[in-house]
Amino acid sequence: MMIIILLGVIWDEEKDLFNKIFSKLNVWIYNISFNILRNKFDVEELLSETFLKII
């Protein structure tokens, strides 16, 4: 939810860059994280925190 709010206040160029990064890394980071953590909820939290830091 926080990502959606933050996307409302950044420039279009930054949105495009973020979308490219997210599209390329989302599945990759999820798979690696799940192999380590073995917990869907922890992995989703990790993904949220990771992309919030990217923003």
Rank of each mutant, 00 (worst) to 15 (best):
K20E: 06
V43Y: 12
E44N: 08
E14T: 10
I4M: 10
L17H: 03
D42Y: 02
F34R: 01
I5Y: 09
E14C: 05
I29C: 11
L47S: 07
F22R: 06
S33R: 05
F22T: 00
I32M: 10
L47M: 07
S23I: 02
Y30A: 12
I55P: 00
E44L: 06
E14Y: 03
L52T: 10
F41E: 15
D12M: 04
I10Q: 02
R38H: 09
L25R: 11
K53P: 01
I55F: 15
R38I: 00
L7S: 04
E49T: 14
N31W: 02
E45M: 07
L6Q: 07
E44C: 03
I36Q: 13
N26D: 05
S23F: 10
M1I: 12
E44F: 00
I36S: 12
L46N: 05
W28R: 15
D42Q: 11
K40E: 04
F22I: 14
I29Y: 11
V27W: 05
N31M: 11
E45T: 13
F22H: 11
K20Y: 08
N19F: 12
I10T: 08
E14D: 08
L6T: 04
V43Q: 10
N26C: 09
M1E: 12
M1F: 14
L52A: 05
E49L: 07
S23Y: 06
W11Q: 12
E13H: 09
V27G: 06
N31K: 14
V9N: 06
R38D: 09
F18A: 05
L6R: 08
S33Y: 05
K53D: 11
